[in-house]
Design a protein around this nucleic acid. Sequence first.
DNA 1: TTAGACGCAATATGATCATATTGCGCCATG
DNA 2: CATGGCGCAATATGATCATATTGCGTCTAA
Lengths: 207, 207
Amino acid sequence: MATEEYHLARRRQVADAVERLIAERGFEGVTMARAAAEAGVSVGLVQHYFSSKDDLLRYAYTRVTERMLARALHRAEELAAHRGSIRLALRESLAERLPLDEARRAEWRVAFAFAARAVDLPDLAAVRNRTEAAIRDQLAQAITNGKECGEVPAETDARSAAVGLLALVEGLGLHTYLDPALPAPVVLAELERALAGVLPGECRHYG
Amino acid sequence: MATEEYHLARRRQVADAVERLIAERGFEGVTMARAAAEAGVSVGLVQHYFSSKDDLLRYAYTRVTERMLARALHRAEELAAHRGSIRLALRESLAERLPLDEARRAEWRVAFAFAARAVDLPDLAAVRNRTEAAIRDQLAQAITNGKECGEVPAETDARSAAVGLLALVEGLGLHTYLDPALPAPVVLAELERALAGVLPGECRHYG
DNA sequence: TTAGACGCAATATGATCATATTGCGCCATG
DNA sequence: CATGGCGCAATATGATCATATTGCGTCTAA
């Protein structure tokens, strides 16, 4: 009965409830009692599986970032298989991080809430930095591939370019989320412009 | 004795204390009692001048954004007077918003803390959107000026470009602040690359 | 000179939370 | 059938806060 599998499932059950709470009421809306209620369990259970609230939050954030990363990797593989242009691949995977529809808005809100708290909580910052670095590597790899087939100028520093693209997407995300007056086409056009800056060429081979 | 001037000074005294608290302990570190202590006054005084904590925070944020905006305007005038290149002017005023030294880190932390809360508090979001729009206008104006003297291609949409540049700077700021492993030169280089994307030319006349 | 309003201090109130404590049912094992 | 430990539920504890209340000194104006 003490299966590890079972324990893991309970931890996830609570962590998922935390995500839902953040999406609905923001970070401030998360309390031990509410997390328990949302997960349909008792406060005692939550305490049993997490040594403190910080521990719970760190676990929940790790889950969020792992999911984001897994999606990025999956998408990269998918596109490698289909051999589309690198620029197209980058556009897709970057645009996916923008809060342009309700589902993405909810996800974005959760991820951003954690990022904002990471400014004060080094634990969360560490989780975040690890993930961002992995995503940057992913982007940098794609850009490097682009060099080989002429989509990207040889003198481009792939790692720097990845930093810039990722930062742009995060900034655009914040604006998009907060300012309903900002039209989505403008946001996407700016992403496109930035991509054009990095990948002036086009090619059909990938990887 | 009931001079308006006096009232204003007290309000500012408390609002400044709030800023210091955020810079030192983050948004969570702000309580009515601590704000009063930091300002060197009683809790009663704070309550007397602000109808609620939210009111106090909104006032403090308004002050922060007004200062940022005033600085942007001042810098624009300064550069118009000296007639440097527009690209130089944009670089300066954008780089200024990055947390690259301790003073800017503190300012950035305060501004970001408010922006993060703005996700949940529409009052703060309104304050923010107003300011961001003004700064974007400022940038857009500079870019438009660039068209007249050939620094900027005629087909560029100045407003869109401003959105992109501002978003990039905000994203770079977040990365810079959270990730000490990210070298400052890379961040500045990416800002430069983005500027090159918008202003491929150079010219010496401004305004 | 006194009535009252204003500016503020001190303290009370009550809500909310994270966490500590206690104990109970159930299952495995002896 | 004991017994002991594990998984949890229920509740207690104490801290922290925003805000309400109360009252006091001082300046103003009649």
